[in-house]
Design a protein around this nucleic acid. Structure first.
Lengths: 254, 254
DNA sequence: ACTAGCGTCATACGCGCGTTTGACGCTCAT
DNA sequence: ATGAGCGTCAAACGCGCGTATGACGCTAGT
């Protein structure tokens, strides 16, 4: 049966994956070397190529192990919501994205630092990670894009692309923060925050950026006055006279 | 006078900086090698160390050349606004951050792709870039943090840190987008968008995330129902009976 | 005319990287 | 008992990296 050998091999694979995950969370894809991984795992350098074929293949397996279940759950949750016949609103769709992530984050089986892994993955700039996400989860992203489009019929599709890009970038940036735990700790100020409330707060942050109306006249006016103010400050050093320069008139009052 | 030699040296310096900027915008700090830079600049490999001392010193000089003026202008604009005695509101402060960046982005002297450089700098994960920003522009960040704190007295300081982190991450993520120009082109749909309106739209996206109230009961309820829904879907595979499981009752209707 | 010094150049050094190789035990079916 | 096959190991390969070195041409002051 080759019991001992087989178990030893499986154990080595597991330790390599664990070490790779730990170091990836800490340093990201670049700044991750096989020598560091194998040293941390206590195995030989060649073990990675023996068991996985290459460094990238090992990382692909790691990512699939961690992300496949998350995205499958998100999809099932979206299906379940849409199956009721009602069109889920923007906040609900955001919740569908967040709730499985948070609950898996509490599940030790999903990894000891699942949320930080998630943040790293979504914000990592390396082509390897980007390609992996693109190739494996594009249809899921498309499904959610359509769901958002239905929930926000007043937002043009092009503008929606920008807003989603915007919202997801911010989220991944927050998740990837090294001192995320301290941020949450400060947020709670002693009293522990239930996940439900924490997620509701996140939704409250992201949702307005998606549902916001386009620029209002008041906002346009504020920007315009700042543009004028900057131009006048610059021309102070060039022509001391009163600036009637631009293509519109507005005083510089803050 | 050593005119020719001196000019040649200055020309080499300029070409190195230009090439370094171009490649940094395309690939970021990691993925940037001296051999690529010198090849692109048409100079010898040793030129970098001769003129700047080291690779990092050259990049520091590049960053200072590009970012010092921007942040100085931001600071002056904030000073000018606060000097009027009025407390600038959140949208105005965002405008103060954006307007100089956008106007410098239009200025060829600030670099051919200033906004993309800015996005790369703010979203680059390498310790070198992060340290440089931290060391050079921390006081400026502090000034703006205080300004936001005054503009948003109802937001606790700890929550404000999270929100600013969130907002700035999203912004840098959007700026760093490779196909940013196409996004803007789609946005405009033929008709050119004036900068003023574009900035107003950006402010309209970011501002709500800063001013939003904490999670409302309705949001909390939506999240809670999703949490229940996920739990019930999972227990379908474990116990087919009706789930009265959780610690609260709420039907799963979306 | 001579030479000090500057800018450029080819070249090499040491290092860490991902990958490959071949030998060495050990288990287990024959 | 034997030998095939698996998992591990130290060692090495080639590569690209940042940096350092010394020679070479040219300019410009003496």
């Amino acid at each position: 049966m080759r019991t001992t050998g087989g178990n030893q091999a499986a154990e080595t694979r597991r330790r390599l994956l664990d070490s790779a995950e730990h170091l990836f969370i800490e340093r990201g894809y670049e700044g991750l070397s096989m020598r560091q991984i194998t040293a941390h795992a206590g195995t030989n350098l060649a073990a990675v190529n023996y068991h996985f074929g290459s460094k990238d293949a090992m990382l692909r397996e790691l990512l699939s192990q961690r992300l496949d279940r998350l995205n499958e759950e998100r999809l099932q949750l979206l299906d379940a919501c849409e199956a009721t016949g009602q069109i889920p609103d923007c906040e609900t769709i955001l919740g569908i994205l967040f709730v499985p992530a948070m609950q898996l984050g509490r599940d030790p089986a999903a990894g000891p630092a699942f949320l930080r892994l998630l943040g790293r993955v979504y914000s990592d700039a390396s082509p390897f990670i980007r390609d992996h996400l693109q190739q494996h989860y594009r249809p899921i992203f498309g499904r959610f894009f359509d769901a958002f489009a239905r929930a926000l019929p007043h937002v043009p599709r092009s503008e929606l692309g920008l807003r989603l890009h915007f919202a997801l970038k911010s989220l991944s940036g927050v998740l990837a923060t090294d001192d995320m735990d301290e941020l949450v700790a400060e947020l709670s100020m002693g009293r522990p925050i239930p996940d439900t409330e924490l997620l509701a707060r996140l939704v409250a942050l992201v949702s307005p950026a998606l549902t916001a109306p386009l620029g209002t006249p008041a906002q346009v006016d504020k920007i315009h006055r700042l543009q004028q103010l900057r131009q006048s400050r610059i021309s102070e050093y060039q022509e001391p006279g009163p600036a009637h320069a631009g293509h519109s008139g507005a005083t510089s009052g803050a």
